[in-house]
Nucleic acid binder design. Structure first.
Lengths: 221, 221
DNA sequence: CTGATTATTTAGAGTCATCTAAATATTGAC
DNA sequence: GTCAATATTTAGATGACTCTAAATAATCAG
């Protein structure tokens, strides 16, 4: 079995691959908070183990086996997040760090029991899909709020940000999964949006709007 | 903070101290499955940190601080055990190994939420007292089944064994916490007991009987 | 109370994950 | 297309935890 450290590299490589196409030395070293030399070493080690394919100077991509590993860890992470919210009454901004630890001490049986207790859930409290026990993950297409226009209403379905601050801020604005965000105005200059939520009006920066995903309910391009 | 490894040494020292008065090099090395040299190293390290007091060639004893550390870990272990049984429907023989991992990835907040969810419990599924959040642990006096005599009935309150096999075997015999064990006969030769439980008769070896603790209900010396 | 046995410690070394500094390869500006 | 800037890899070293083998201390039998 892999150490906690190695599991975290595998998970991070998966995320970088989804985000950037592949995990380069500098991206990996930044995300893992280690020196580039350390990232290179680990990429070579994982390549030797058949978890990734390494093209020197061009980064790594997970193999099929590597992808399965990563999805297993992500599944456990997201099951724990949901469990913390639904059972132990945690807030959505408190769960990421906890799950980051718990995901590495979860046996097959514990994973199965969590899954069962939660009724075989398909999404976590941030709206991310939970891979099934075979490591399959549905690819649900939502649009980023930033791509919507004045007159559109977007129903929030996913927040692509594990940062506690961002999630806490959204809660403060009265925004949660399922909230309908009606775009009143989009400021051309910096992309900031004025949106109506539950009767109130809020400003959402373009940067934040790029992390909010949902379904277009009415209005259009 | 301490590594998982160091936490396990601290916990093991606590257990050995309770069992044998102090943790010697050989006991510690055996329990931790490391060489005696490694145990010595760790004892010296923990002494430097003020977790234990080390008398060379005579083993270690936890300091006040060390004891607090140990009881924190044990508290988390036992809360998780109870949680696994009560919430996730685990059997009592399946929980030790799981809790052995979870105890090391439990934040203050998670510990508090577990405790709250379980209604501030005082004993775990094997009947061991759960230390409170100040690291205080009540010392409840029960008698070992082995000390009881024919005619006595002992109500089972604690099983001093984390081995999955032993617990599974007890379940097979229909014995659980709260069971009344009526001693029918004690074989002089090897101490084996014939006991009546729920209408059936079972044999319990002296070795096992020394791991079963409870209250004397009737009969006497 | 002495010698043999057993327990403990010391010495020296290995592995894993990490670092810094130096060397090498790639990329981008002109 | 060449050279400077940037990214990556290599080389050598460190700390945490582990080992084996050798040295030393404690214990026990006679």
């Amino acid at each position: 079995m892999h150490s906690v450290i190695v599991e975290n590299y595998i998970k991070t490589i998966y995320q970088l691959e989804n985000l950037e196409g592949r995990a380069t030395t500098s991206l990996l070293s930044e995300k893992m908070q280690v020196s580039p030399a350390t990232a290179t070493d680990m990429m070579k080690r994982l390549a030797d183990e058949g978890i990734v394919r390494h093209e020197p100077y061009r980064g790594v991509r997970l193999t099929g086996r590597g992808k399965k590993h990563a999805l297993k860890i992500i599944r456990r992470h997201r099951l724990w997040e949901l469990f913390l919210v639904q059972v132990l009454d945690f807030e959505w901004h408190e769960i990421h760090e906890e799950a980051e630890l718990l995901e590495h001490c979860t046996s097959e049986k514990l994973e199965a029991r969590l899954d069962e207790y939660l009724g075989h859930p398909t999404v976590d409290p941030h709206g991310h899909a939970i891979p099934n026990s075979n490591g399959e993950i549905p690819n649900i297409e939502y649009i980023p709020l930033a791509s919507a226009n004045p007159g559109d209403t977007v129903r929030l379905r996913r927040v692509n940000d594990d940062s506690s601050d961002v999630l806490q801020y959204l809660s403060q604005l009265g925004i949660e999964l399922g909230s309908d965000l009606a775009i009143v105005e989009k400021i051309a200059f910096d992309g900031t949006m004025r949106v109506r939520v539950d009767g109130g009006e809020q400003f959402i920066s373009e940067k934040l709007a790029n992390h909010l995903f949902g379904e277009l309910m009415k209005g259009g391009a």
